[in-house]
Write a protein that binds this DNA or RNA. Structure first.
Lengths: 339, 339
DNA sequence: GATAACCACTAAACCGGTTCAGTTGAGAGT
DNA sequence: ACTCTCAACTGAACCGGTTTAGTGGTTATC
């Protein structure tokens, strides 16, 4: 079979313990012996078994990510793949691995976390899509596993957060529209149970207030294309129809823009539209979508790094705030229609 | 700490071995004793440690999925999330877990497979995006791990395949266009290094031949929106400009449709367009995209199931062929323009 | 010159399961 | 009454690492 620590110990003429010390850079072996052991290990091509390591150190050397979105929504969200790619870049350097679970249906999410924890599959979790009063925070405290949250939860959380400010992007979008002369600027919100759904709405409200405008054109949706379309339809039926809509994500913006066009409303002539996320396909829409360009890959890398630091007790407990995303002006926004 | 097999053995008044036999349904314990042991285990809430199990049985109880796509392309592909969700449904029943790696950059893919294999992280791999003469097949034979391929590779492969016929969907799209009177039906192909890129192109060629039409309007692309747009531009510059384009996926079709519109070409008035995958957003495009609706969730579930069966030696070695996807006719296709 | 302190290292226990080689007792066969 | 067999179970080895307790020899301390 594969070469074990005993083989290396035998080859170097020392005990298993000495090999372990040498490998892990612990005291207890002289420099010369250490060199001899490492040399033998290299010659034999020894790879310490993670399974054995895991058993004696009670670690999994893996991080968990539980995704509780509906697969059809997940499908077109550019966030996760890039986020995961970012996680990988951090994990790869530390021989850690990502265990991914997709939980669909009520209760599945909690079961997922419990199972991964109880089976000792992971040493910690990355929490995305943090919700208002998120039940996962007490759950993970109960399971006694560390975690990192994306954005700071609104409930008390003992876990460090890695945040990417939503506010700046939405504010920039609103300011951009105000500068173009719009006064009736609506917002199609994402699920308000999510804190990023809420914060984007609040950012829209604040930005309007700062411009001296009323924030009365809000339509609730759920980050899905279908929801975005319905919310758009509702807004466009109003007597005080908006001349611009700020969407909480690209998928809703796409659906909304498309819906408006089918109603004979031109974009950006009659209606300006902004999205959020900068999904790849948005630059190929007709017109290309003005949107907020986030960096989920960086987010993933930093979040994983913070969690790894926590596991090695190297984390200071402080939240990390990433650079705010920037507005990408494309052709879906234009001057407010006259009148 | 947690309750171990020894605790259970002690509680039931038997040896560790007996508990192991009882739990795994092996002979060596009488029905009465077995009952008593299971009872004790339940009362103590014993969960056998996967780590310990893994060490003695040399198994990881996990399956690996290495995704080698560019994250930006991945982002808008609805395939993976649904595929992964399908995998989960199969794994959840067997206490198996999914280890996901995203490999970016040349050489990263092979390194990923090697690392997961050498670290004993997984018991087998799911191979997606199978390529022409795919180097991963000899690689996995070298690594001595079982696998399942999505679609049968064109090179010799010892691994069972789970296939979803590409041909039928493309054929249906072409037949649909022919029935609408189109004679110049182009194809914007996906990367031809992928067997699904090739097979979709071949299906397009065969369907045209069956209709007595020449398959001379092919433009190579790479499944990305940018590539789809460039290929579309190329086709529309031709003197014998097509009246319909069959795209190898939705992302390219979206970009192509949008590009045509910016050039003053109406869809479907001047140009009919079909996609492939039925991404969520396609039904909210303007016009909604005629596309081929696949079932990646089912695919994932079956593929994982086949791999699990292989691991328990319960697989017959036969390939599995899933039901062919169907054409979803929406408003991006219409009668061929007169003349 | 006795004692303490320290270094480099080994042997063995340990993590929590699986599995192999025996041991025991009961029942069958002759 | 004697072996023979088999089921039921135990004890120990084993998987491949980490870690603790202990050993022998050298050097510092008073």
């Amino acid at each position: 079979m594969a070469v074990t620590i005993s083989d290396v110990a035998h080859a170097a003429g020392v005990s298993k313990g000495a090999v372990s010390y040498a490998l892990n850079g612990q005291p207890g072996v002289s420099a010369g012996t250490r060199e001899r052991i490492l040399q033998a290990a290299k010659e034999l091509g020894w790879k310490p078994s993670l399974r054995a390591k895991g058993l004696s150190s009670a670690k999994a050397y893996a991080l968990g990510l539980v995704v509780a979105r509906d697969p059809s929504l997940l499908g077109t969200d550019p966030f996760f793949p890039a986020f995961i790619a970012g996680i990988e870049t951090a994990l790869a350097e530390h021989d850690y691995t990502l265990v991914l679970s997709v939980a669909t249906g009520a209760g599945a999410e909690e079961r997922c976390y419990r199972k991964l924890a109880e089976n000792g599959r992971v040493d910690g979790f990355l929490l995305t899509d943090v919700r208002h009063d998120d039940s996962r925070i007490p759950l993970l405290q109960e399971l006694k596993l560390p975690a990192v949250t994306l954005n700071r939860p609104d409930a008390d959380s003992p876990f460090p957060a890695v945040s990417m400010d939503d506010c700046a992007g939405i504010t920039a979008a609103v300011e951009h529209l105000v500068a173009l002369g719009h006064t009736r600027i609506a917002h199609v919100g994402g699920g308000q149970e999510y804190i990023h759904g809420r914060s984007r709405r609040q950012a829209w409200e604040s930005a309007l207030a700062a411009a001296g405008l009323r924030a009365d054109l809000f339509a609730a949706a759920d980050f899905t294309a279908a929801g975005g379309m319905a919310a758009t339809a509702e807004l466009l039926r109003r007597a005080d129809r908006p001349t611009a809509i700020v969407y909480a994500n690209d998928l809703m913006a796409t659906a909304g823009q498309s819906y408006a066009q089918t109603q004979g409303i031109t974009v950006p002539g009659d209606l300006s539209v902004t999205g959020y996320d900068n999904a790849d396909f948005t630059q190929y829409l007709n017109p290309p979508l003005t949107t907020v360009s986030t960096d989920p890959m960086l987010w993933g890398r930093v979040a994983a790094q913070v969690l790894l630091n926590q596991l090695s007790n190297a984390h200071d407990g402080e939240d990390t705030v990433l650079q705010a995303p920037t507005l990408l002006v494309r052709a879906s926004t234009g001057p407010a229609p006259a009148g």
